[in-house]
Every structure is written in structure tokens, then in C-alpha cells.
Write a protein that binds this DNA or RNA. Structure first.
Length: 259
DNA sequence: ATGCCCACTATGAGTGGA
């Protein structure tokens, strides 16, 4: 069973590349983030032709998440337990579904903008709600994983040059503590292998030749319980998807499970 | 070669991304 996550930075802008990637990579389950489309605008027919059912949770211009599955899609849950609002809006940033017995959540953690910004406080509150959801769904007998764009680099090695991140989001102690709380809840960071270079970055800015220079970050994560990690056979970042015409600025993370 | 922001809304410039 192949499970993947990919921040596509607009489903409509990325549709040709998404369909090509589904055909070549053949994931059984794909978690998507940054759809930037409303639920009624999701290209269900096109992904349906490739055999995928869709559970999406979007509202238009910003955010938006989905789970695509060709092995069943049950018990869809939209939003987190006690998910906080930002400026009065509870944003579409999390959707859960059960696919062939595996419970997955596609998550898009708020960016945070900068430490001290209200969006940063929102990010930390949002991560508390994510933790509450993990606790509410805890079941050691069921494979479980959060997959998505966490907007946090777990360690200093997960950015290309930590000296450039002074007073930046994504690397603060409070954000990393939120990941530690998820680990304390029984989840493990499933670190993918890079297909080139030494570190498995998943995001490269569009600007300043970041991708050719490999000025990247590992912020797209898979946090899984033991039943899930025990089944992991391989995990890698598909950096090929970052190349070429009209790519997303994120690459997919692919996890292969036994069975 | 991996190649020097992109996508959205709206119609030009502002916002968000990280």
C-alpha cells in the first residue's frame, strides 16, 4: 500500500501535473494540501477516472485539504477537535478518512507569518487542537498517521542554512515543542530518504534558484503511530515532481507499507 | 541539466505563502 502527501499549491493550477503524477506514482492514498478551491469546484471527475474517491474540505481562495483514495474512503471527518478560528473563520485545514483500515489525516498547519504575529499564536493553538484530535482518535490497534504540510522544520538540519532563520517561524522552540507533544502522544516522525543530496527536503522557494541550489526545507511530515510505522517498508521524497514546467513549490512525500 | 516567484482575486495591485 502506497500513501503519499503533497502540498500542490492550487489544485486547478496543478491539475495536469497531479493527474500525471497519480498515473506514474500510483499512490493508493494521497493527502493534498493548499487546494485553493471550494468543494464544488474540486476536479472529482478527472481524478475519478483514475480510480480515486475524494474527501475534500475547501472553501475557495485559501487553504483546503483532501484525501484521495482508490482503496476505500470511510468515516470522513472535516476539521479538528475544538479547532480554533482565525479572524472569526474556522479554516479548512484538516480532513480525516479511513482507507483500507488505515486512518489518515491530511493537515495544513497555519504558516504563522512571524513570531509575535497573531497568526503565530493561532498556529500554536491549531497545533494544540491537532494534539487533541490525535488523543481522541487514539487506537493502538489501528494504523494511524498525520500527513501534510506542518510548516515546521523538526531540526536545524531540516533547513538548508539555519543561520538564515533567526527570528523566523518554522524553527522556533514553541513550534518544535508542539511536535514533541505529538511524539509524546505516541507518534513517530517517518523520515523519508532523499533521492538526491543528503537531506530529504520537501519544499523549495520558487525564487532565487532555490531548487537547483537545494536551498530547501523539510516541512512536509508524516507522523504515525506504531502500527503504521511497523508496516513502513520505504519512504522517500519525490523531488522529480518539483522539476519542470509549472511545479508546486513542494514535492510529494511517499510512504510504502507492507501489505 | 533542476534555472533566477507563484496563485489568487479582480482587472491592478494587494495578499499570502515560508
Amino acid at each position: 500500500m502506497r500513501i503519499a502527501t503533497w502540498n500542490v499549491n492550487s489544485i486547478s493550477a496543478r491539475l495536469p501535473r497531479l493527474l500525471a503524477w497519480l498515473s506514474s506514482a500510483q499512490p493508493d492514498v494521497l493527502c493534498l494540501q493548499e487546494l485553493k478551491c471550494a468543494d464544488d469546484a474540486f476536479p472529482r471527475d478527472q481524478v475519478g477516472e483514475l480510480g480515486y474517491a475524494v474527501a475534500c474540505h475547501g472553501s475557495g481562495r485559501w487553504s483546503g485539504v483532501a484525501v484521495l483514495s482508490r482503496v476505500g474512503l470511510d468515516d470522513v471527518t472535516r476539521g479538528l477537535v475544538d479547532q480554533p478560528a482565525y479572524e472569526g473563520v474556522v479554516e479548512p485545514r484538516a480532513v480525516g478518512a479511513t482507507c483500507a483500515g488505515v486512518r489518515v489525516w491530511s493537515v495544513y498547519v497555519p504558516n504563522g507569518r512571524e513570531p509575535g504575529h497573531p497568526h503565530y499564536a493561532y498556529k500554536l493553538r491549531w497545533l494544540e487542537a491537532l494534539h487533541a484530535t490525535v488523543l481522541a482518535e487514539a487506537d493502538p490497534n489501528r494504523p494511524f498517521a498525520l500527513l501534510g504540510d506542518f510548516n515546521i522544520a523538526p531540526t536545524d538540519d531540516d533547513v538548508w542554512d539555519i543561520s538564515l532563520f533567526t527570528n523566523s517561524t518554522h524553527v522556533t522552540d514553541a513550534e518544535r515543542k508542539a511536535l514533541a507533544v505529538l511524539r509524546d502522544a505516541g507518534l513517530t516522525d517517518v523520515v523519508p530518504r532523499p533521492l538526491k543530496y543528503d537531506r530529504p527536503f520537501t519544499y523549495w522557494d520558487y525564487r532565487q534558484l532555490a531548487f537547483p541550489k537545494n536551498n530547501g526545507m523539510r516541512i512536509d511530515l508524516v507522523y504515525a503511530n506504531q502500527r503504521f510505522t511497523d508496516a513502513v517498508r520505504d519512504a522517500y521524497v519525490d523531488r522529480e515532481a518539483r522539476k519542470g514546467k509549472a511545479p508546486s513549490d513542494h514535492a510529494p512525500v511517499v510512504v510504502d507499507l507492507h501489505g
